[in-house]
């Protein structure tokens, strides 16, 4: 009987495939005990399904909705994720790390260190006297170039907000002569020697 147990349950609920149903019913005709068992199972299923049971219904629903509302109110407020500080924090960390490395590591300018520090422009700083020069508003780039090259100088700063450039002269150059040369140009407004 145990072998047919699951089949009988499926048969009672009408879920046994057609071929199996026919075969089982054939067996029932041949085996009265199996037929009685089938009748019991079917009656059990019918009785259980006809048993009236009423759940909490709308009261249960109202209770559930109340529980849901309470749960939502109790839920911790999750602040929107502020991710903007992360890149800032990473950048700050990198800066601190670089500074620490520079402070802790060997000083690059000491005793022929392998570190060759130079201006970012790649040019050596020109040694020698410095002049300040202001050009006329009508001066062209070509005029400025002519004036600077005529005294073998280099523009090391400027123009400032007032249009003043700083010129560096070569070490051997005469400051007075350079000032005079520059003042001779029509397009030079002012030359100031140190």
């Amino acid at each position: 009987m145990k072998d047919f147990d699951e089949q009988l349950n499926l048969w009672a609920s009408g879920r046994l495939p057609e071929a199996e149903r026919r075969a089982l019913e054939q067996k029932m005709e041949e085996d009265p005990a199996l037929a009685r068992e089938a009748a019991f199972v079917k009656a059990l299923k019918c009785s259980m399904q006809s048993e009236p049971t009423t759940g909490p219904g709308e009261f249960g629903l109202a209770r559930l909705q109340k529980s849901l509302r309470e749960e939502q109110e109790e839920a911790p407020v999750v602040l929107p994720r502020k991710s903007f500080w992360k890149p800032v924090a990473i950048a700050a960390s990198v800066i601190v790390a670089v500074q620490a490395a520079m402070l802790i590591g060997p000083a690059p300018w000491e005793n022929g260190s392998a570190v060759d520090m130079r201006p970012a422009s790649g040019e050596a700083i020109v040694e020698g006297p410095r002049l300040q020069i202001a050009f006329a508003p009508t001066a062209t780039m070509s005029d400025i170039q002519t004036a600077v090259l005529s005294v073998n100088g280099s523009i090391v700063a400027g123009p400032s907000a007032l249009g003043v450039f700083r010129l560096a002269l070569s070490g051997e150059a005469s400051t007075e002569a350079a000032v005079q040369t520059l003042r001779d140009y029509d397009f030079v407004d002012e030359v100031i020697a140190p």
Binding site: T53, T54, G55, P56, G57, G60, L61, L64
Partner: peptide
């Protein structure tokens, strides 16, 4: 809830 309340209960 309305669909499954009774069977679950």
């Amino acid at each position: 809830y309305r669909r499954h309340e009774t069977r679950l209960y």
